[in-house]
Design a protein around this nucleic acid. Structure first.
Lengths: 336, 336
DNA sequence: ATGAAAGCGCTAACAC
DNA sequence: GTGTTAGCGCTTTCAT
């Protein structure tokens, strides 16, 4: 194995000079820099990561804890992970993969052993047992999602409130005056990650602001529940011309149920979904939707960590703006 | 940060004794072991990973290079990754995530810096530019898939030949005597990863062995191609009662095309797919299928690496037996 | 069964 | 602008 002293000898300089050429933490004459670089290339030198971590107190590794539980949409997780790795590499960092199962202990382990300099935790729950651990750790971390008490933590997420509002605004602009939200199962509104409530808030506020009659219907994630909900909505609001769906598994069944009830999409009923692009694209009819910006979440999380590692100040909360993609399921309201 | 000398002092022993308690590489009196362990717990000691790597020449990290390119079925990749991480953790190892983009350089980097002790490379192509790099590296590696020249490399994969045969055997046992294979696009049979050929071989051999008339039809991965293939198959073999599909994207369109041609599945036509379980389960009609055993691939890959790291001999090729799951798309052949 | 001490390869403080 | 050197925290040989 070729080490820094080998490079130093080959280039006729001291080991520290090689180190400084690599780190750029000292001004080096152009001539020396070139000679050292040539020796590095000639010998194929790669610094020993462990030695570096020991001497510098920096491993240049980020730990990434991903959810692998069912119910999480896998492509979104992968996209997020890919973005984290790519962005980390652009900042000279590597990524250590941890599973949710490792829990708080896993975070303590990689932080305590100095294996990782910083941590990214995805799929944060409202009351997450990893939060207390993160608070005691000396290493910076970024959460994807917001816990119940986010004070002092750095959190990133889609701005779900704005996302709820954006759906309504899109439909209002198309002339719709009565829009219902088919939401997540009732229990999600009580516990879980809290985003369901925020969508509902944005939905309600935008409805009020645009003079749109709007009602929120929690809905179980089963095709039967979707069908019952469709029937109930039409019974309650014969004048209904548009819906927003925030409940991934039933997007397709719900659209099918409305079809069976004689409503054509988008002629009679416009549909906007809040779901991964993959699902919106592959539905039998491509759906107008607001997606989770997985890629941007990943790169933002890494950027925030890099700032914290550099001692730069960062905002506690980062809310990414929602983006709505118009597809075939929403259209101008037709006169009755 | 609490270090090994702190623990040693607290327990009234030397640092080396603490180290030996942790590694078990020396016999320690029961009394000493207990005192040391209590000190470790009391102080919350976690060994410094970098220092350990430097002194022991072992990082206890495996590098995992995953494909993120389109065309790879994402849930399979995630399942594989989860299995690798879980199995690695059971062997006291962590997992560093690399993307395919990093290529051969990425492998050299993590191996050269001693960041990783060993490497797992997924989605190996027939002529993969990472193979030469792997051969020059001093660190053990395991490939998922087989390159054109696998000599001296440790490779793991589903036994695609056996998988092709298993499909035919299942159908033969149901009384089918004429079975066609709808395969991958023509070009896949020439380059790519080579598994398409192996499926075809197993299919052909099993057909011959069981007295089943069998023909192989490469097919483009578009719904239109699926429809044309369906028409062609029926024209060529009016007596056709079963097909095997090895082409993920067109599984659903192909089944739909046969339906439109008046063939009911499974009454008139049995269908067996070679595709991820996810796809087989979620098809409009649940499909009898042979899946990629992602989880087993992951754990096997790690086990092989652990053996290599321990200096134990391992087989060059590991072929995992296929497993067929019977669902609703295959049935006993009905008398004409 | 245990201790003492020599490194592992690198960084960064100190010297010039 | 460059060299010297003292650690970083651990493992492992050598010694007893």
């Amino acid at each position: 194995m070729v080490k820094i002293s080998d490079v130093a000898r080959h280039a006729g300089v001291s080991p520290s000079t090689v180190s400084y050429v690599l780190s750029g933490k000292r001004t080096i004459s152009e001539d020396t820099r070139r000679r050292v670089q040539e020796s590095i290339d000639a010998l194929g030198y790669t610094p020993h990561a462990g030695a570096r971590a020991l001497a510098s107190n920096r491993s240049n590794v980020l730990a990434l804890m991903l959810p692998l539980r069912p119910g999480i949409h896998v492509p979104v997780v992968m996209q997020f992970a890919a973005s984290v790795v790519t962005t980390a590499r652009a900042h000279e960092h590597d990524v250590l993969l941890l599973t949710q199962e490792e829990g708080a202990d896993g975070l303590r382990r990689v932080a305590g052993s100095a294996l990782a300099d910083a941590l990214i935790v995805m799929d944060v729950q409202l009351h997450d047992d990893r939060i207390p651990q993160l608070r005691t750790l000396d290493r910076p971390s970024v959460l994807i999602g917001f816990p119940a008490e986010p004070d002092g933590l750095t959190c990133v997420d889609l701005d779900f409130r704005a996302a709820g509002a954006l759906c309504v605004e899109h439909l209002a602009a198309l002339g719709h005056r009565c829009v219902d939200l088919v939401g997540s199962p009732p229990e999600v509104y009580e516990r879980e990650t809290g985003f369901a409530q925020r969508v509902a808030e944005g939905f309600r506020e935008a409805g009020a602001a645009h003079g749109v009659t709007s009602v929120i219907h929690p809905c179980e994630a089963t095709p039967e529940a979707a069908r019952r909900t469709a029937e109930r909505l039409l019974a309650l609001h014969p004048e209904l011309t548009a819906i927003v769906v925030h409940n991934e598994p039933i997007v397709a069944p719900l659209v099918a149920a409305f079809r069976d009830l004689g409503l054509r999409v988008p002629e009679d009923l416009s549909v906007v979904a809040l779901c991964p692009d993959e699902i919106a694209e592959r539905a039998p009819m491509p759906l107008t939707s607001v997606a989770i910006p997985a890629e941007e979440l990943g790169s933002r999380a890494v950027q925030l960590l890099m700032a914290k590692l550099d001692g730069r100040p960062v905002p506690d909360a980062t809310l990414l703006p929602p983006r709505l993609t118009v597809r075939s399921s929403s259209a101008v309201r037709r006169p009755a």
